[in-house]
Design a protein around this nucleic acid. Structure first.
Lengths: 197, 197
DNA sequence: AACTAAACGGACCGATCGGTCAGGTTGAGC
DNA sequence: GCTCAACCTGACCGATCGGTCCGTTTAGTT
C-alpha cells in the first residue's frame, strides 16, 4: 500500500471502469487497445496491472458477482421471501456481465470459482426460505436459480437492446415456472456444481 | 444443374456437413481453415461455394431453422396440443445452432429473416392451439416461445456438455411457467418482431 | 485421346489481436 | 530540488483470421 504510487491506483480505477463499461456494451471480445483508449491510458499500462486479458476479465466479473452476493445476503432479511428471490434474480439479470462470467474459460479462474460458489450458496439460502413459505416448488435448488438467471439474461440477447425492459417479461415467466401451482415432475435431477466434474 | 460438376456438389455436401458439425461442437468462431480440413477440401474451395463466412453460416442455420419449422408443422396435427408445443420447444433446444442463428449480425441475412419469420408463425400456431385447449396461459405469443427456446438453450451453456440431458430440466421448468395455473400478470408486453425496429 | 471450362488447392495478403520491451516520465522520500 | 524506483507509453512482435489469386487438376464432351 505504501509502496504504490498515486497515479497507479488512479489509472487502475480508470482501467477497471472503462473495461467494465466496454464489456457491458460490446462483450468480452472488445480489444485491449479499445479499453485502454476509453480509459485514457496506454495499452502497455493495461498489462502492467493485469498480466493477461483473462485476468482483467476475472477481476471485473468476480467483483460484480460478489456485489450480487452482497445483494442476495441483504435480501435474506426482508419480509416477503418470494419477492426477495425474484428481486435477487432481477438483480442478477440486470448486471449483464453475468452470462459472460460463466464461460468455460472463465471458470478456471480461482476468483470466479470462489465468487460463483458463494453465489450459489446465497441463491440456495433465498430459495429454501421462499420454499418454506410456499412461494416456490420444493424441487428447485440454488444451482437451478443461478442457471435460470443466466437463461433469462440470454432470452432477450437476440434482440440486443432494442426493447430495454423486455427481460422482465421473461424473468417473470420463468419465475412463474418456479411456483408450486404449476409444478410438474422434473425429468432430470439438479446438477451438483457449476463446474464440470 | 446440368452445368454443375459432380465433384462440386460432393464437395459442397462435405463442406456443409463439416461446417455444421464444427459450429455445433465449437461455435461459430471456428476458423474456415479448420472447417475445410475437416471436410477434406482446400480452404479456397470453401470460398468458391460461399463468398463469405457469414453466407456459409446463413446457409447452414437457415436450413436448420427450416427443419424446425417443418417439425413444428408436423406437430400441429397431433392429438395433445400441450405435448406438441413442449416437443416443438425440445426440438428447438436440441439443435443448438438455434442460439447462434440469432445473433444481431446473422439477422441481416434475408434467408435467416425468412426462416425465423416462418418459425415464429408456426410457434404462434402451436401456442394458440395449446392455449385454446387450456394447456398454456393466454398472454404468451409465438415470439415468446421462440425466445424461451433460446433461453432454455443458453441456460446450460455454462456447463458445456458436462451433463448431457440437463437442458430438459430447465425446459421443463420454463414450460411450467407457461401453464395457466401459475400465471401472474406480465410486467411488459410481448415484442412485435425479432428484429429491432 | 484430346480439349476445355469448371473446380480445386494452398501460398499469399492485409488487418487485427494479445502481449512485450526499451526508453521517456513522474511521484515520493530526503 | 535531487534522486531513483516505480510507472507509463506506443512502437513492435508473432500468431491468427477472413479473403484473394493463380497455377494445377479434373470432369465431361466430342
Amino acid at each position: 500500500m505504501a509502496n504504490v504510487r498515486a497515479d497507479a491506483v488512479r489509472n487502475r480505477r480508470l482501467l477497471l471502469d472503462a473495461a467494465a463499461a466496454e464489456f457491458a456494451e460490446h462483450g468480452t471480445e472488445v480489444s485491449i487497445a479499445r479499453i485502454a483508449a476509453r480509459a485514457g491510458i496506454g495499452k502497455g499500462t493495461v498489462f502492467r496491472h493485469f498480466a493477461t486479458k483473462e485476468q482483467l476479465m476475472a477481476a471485473i466479473f468476480s467483483d460484480q458477482l460478489e456485489s450480487l452476493v452482497a445483494r442476495g445476503e441483504a435480501l435474506r432479511e426482508g419480509a416477503d421471501s418470494g419477492a426477495a428471490l425474484l428481486e435477487f434474480m432481477a438483480a442478477g439479470v440486470e448486471l449483464r456481465s453475468f452470462c459472460q462470467a460463466f464461460t468455460p474459460a472463465m471458470r478456471e479462474d480461482p476468483q470466479i470459482r470462489a465468487a460463483s460458489d458463494r453465489l450459489v450458496a446465497v441463491a440456495r439460502s433465498l430459495t429454501d426460505r421462499a420454499c418454506r413459505d410456499g412461494f416456490v416448488r420444493d424441487d428447485v435448488t440454488g444451482h437451478d436459480v443461478v442457471l435460470l438467471i443466466n437463461a433469462a439474461c440470454q432470452a432477450v440477447a437476440p434482440l440486443g437492446d432494442a426493447v430495454p425492459g423486455l427481460w422482465r417479461r421473461y424473468l417473470s415467466m420463468i419465475f412463474d415456472g418456479l411456483r408450486p401451482e404449476a409444478a410438474h415432475p422434473l425429468p432430470v435431477p439438479a446438477p451438483d456444481s457449476l463446474t464440470p466434474g
